[in-house]
Design a protein around this nucleic acid. Structure first.
Lengths: 338, 338
DNA sequence: CCCTGGCACTCTTCGCACGCGAGTGCCAGA
DNA sequence: TCTGGCACTCGCGTGCGAAGAGTGCCAGGG
């Protein structure tokens, strides 16, 4: 087990390294943090920490830098979440309140997160599966061709074409529209399937085929999670990554372009609070030298989507976690209001 | 005036430099292209070309590299557009045909362009202003609150909330919906204002306020060009930019994040064919060392939006122009079909 | 008049040796 | 268990010299 002082040394190393981006040596440590012991003692502690795999030296006789394991310990035990200051909170709120629609909310959130953390921000559009239906609209485009429009409580709109097996009259259409809405409006997506199950039975035999088709299209739309979209911002911050940068930055940019990868990345975080994945904890290879800080957000009490930032493992974890948490909270509020 | 051979020398310099990324000297030139003259002669020509500002040397006694002006001449006079090979065309078509909706078309187009050109691809969503209305839908969300949904021929959907000055009955709503659609369905956005001008007069006095509100919201949506969206891809290709990269790449990433800048960039190109803006010809400072190759695309004969790529001024212009043109053509086809 | 070969000159780049400084590991003593 | 001291190891920056690439200019030839 590590003594209290050794943990302090680790904390000091992480803090210094995050600040200076340079390997930190025993002497510098004792000067900048008053640990009350001499460099020689710190050296012993460092040797122990290295033995345990929390820190490493880039080359012999250079300072130490934290390993992924070291950051993990730092995040779990040595540092809390740094709350935003009141002025910062107000700024966040003001900035988000100017949004006019869902796209704008997401766009503003991305920019805000990127600016606050000076890292790459990723915001997932509110997911369909956990939200509720505001309205379902059916339009007749041609005798046997309908358009289905689904409007969610988060303001998102999805549309689908429906090719009917048989012509469908305006009266039937109005009937279906009314019945459909009376059943599903305000209900959660997850509940919709059971609510509309017996709907075809209320129609004449000739219309049932079309009704079934419409319903299955609706259900398809509801479960189509692969349609989940993301917005990314602050990629220019990647240039602050490090000195060895062409090699580091490329796989990150590639990973960021693959929405599937990012969605999986965000999705993995099951923790109700802020989740941190450090370096090799990220499944995707290109992100092995980055950390991902993410959290769920939602319009009500429940999370409907995730947002987060991607940055170098050498990042200010308390500050980043605080910013991510605060932004998620305020976005949730904005979504609940609209 | 420049002699024919001097133009050939310039062409050779551009081609070599694009290939090798290194300043090209007189000796190498005569070896790789059989110009039929000696290095000494080429040197004289180079001196003349430098005098005229078409090429420059990074430092004394290094080879020459083309200037923006040199590339301009190359693009305008010395090189054509390199057409895609039949297999490439087929590949483009196949890839785009798999798209299921507008978002998917745009996403695939971006990926395709980025892959073909190995540069950053930018695709503008089909613009509202030049397309036509497929359908307008009105939903009653609350007694004095409507939702207006606009569906375009390119499959795009826009929705807006409308707060009515007075409650609006279901009958009036249906009436308005029917009248609105009979007037504007299938018409071009630009024609809509004059088509609905006198619509309020057909309604009872008590409803006119609401009708006017709805109409002005509709017109607002139509002209709201600032809502034009973009999709960007292939940013990982920025890593191939050059050796001096952190400095070059940063402003480019920043510019790419500012949609306004990009939209203006694409919008500037008025040429009906492929437009090339080289280096300092780009108004935005961050893009001074990049070239933008863009072209309009559309579902019918007319362009409704732009797409293009952003790359280093040292790029394969003929190939890039060919790829951009081909992709635009096929996207247009796909949009026309759907 | 234009092209050519030759020659001197300029710069950059690379390799190499050297010295400096930061940092470590270890040991003996308090 | 902590401390001060000491020898050792590397990485990094510097300076210098040689090599190489490329240029500009000039005199001669078609």
């Amino acid at each position: 087990m590590l003594s209290e002082r050794r943990l302090q040394v680790l904390r000091a190393i992480v803090q210094d390294y995050v600040g200076t981006e340079e390997p930190v040596g025993s002497k510098a440590l004792t000067e900048r943090h008053n640990l009350g012991v001499s460099p020689a003692t710190v050296r012993n502690d460092m040797a122990a920490l290295e033995e345990e795999g929390f820190i490493a030296q880039p080359h012999t006789s250079a300072g130490r830098i934290p390993t992924d394991k070291g950051y993990r310990l730092f995040v779990d035990k040595l540092a809390g979440v740094k709350p935003m200051s009141p002025p910062e909170r107000r700024a966040i709120q003001n900035f988000l309140e100017g949004a006019v629609d869902l796209d704008d909310v997401v766009a503003r959130t991305v920019r805000l997160l990127a600016q606050l953390t000076r890292q790459v921000a990723v915001v997932q559009y509110p997911s369909l599966t956990r939200s509720t239906v505001r309205h379902v609209e059916l339009l007749s485009l041609a005798p046997a061709r309908l358009m289905l429009v689904l409007i969610t409580d988060t303001g998102r709109v999805e549309q689908r074409m429906v090719d009917c097996p048989a012509p469908f009259g305006e009266a039937s259409l109005a009937d279906l529209r009314a019945r459909l809405n009376s059943r599903v409006a305000g209900r959660r997506f997850a509940d919709v399937p059971s609510l509309v199950e017996d709907l075809p039975e209320a129609f004449e035999a000739e219309d049932r085929g079309t009704v079934s088709t419409v319903l299955s299209t609706l259900l398809e739309t509801l479960v189509e999670e692969n349609e989940e979209r993301l917005m990314i911002g602050g990629t220019a911050n990647l240039t602050r990554f490090g000195h060895d940068f062409p090699l580091t930055i490329r796989p990150v940019l590639e990973a960021l372009e693959e929405q599937v990868v990012l969605l999986k990345l965000l999705g993995e975080a099951k923790d109700p609070g802020v989740t941190v994945r450090i370096g090799h904890e990220n499944a995707h290879e290109g992100l092995n030298s980055t950390s991902v800080v993410s959290v769920g957000y939602g319009s009500g009490g429940e999370a409907v989507a995730k947002l987060g930032v991607v940055g170098p493992t050498r990042m200010d974890y308390p500050g980043t976690m605080g910013a991510v948490r605060a932004v998620a909270r305020y976005v949730g509020q904005i979504l609940a209001e609209s």
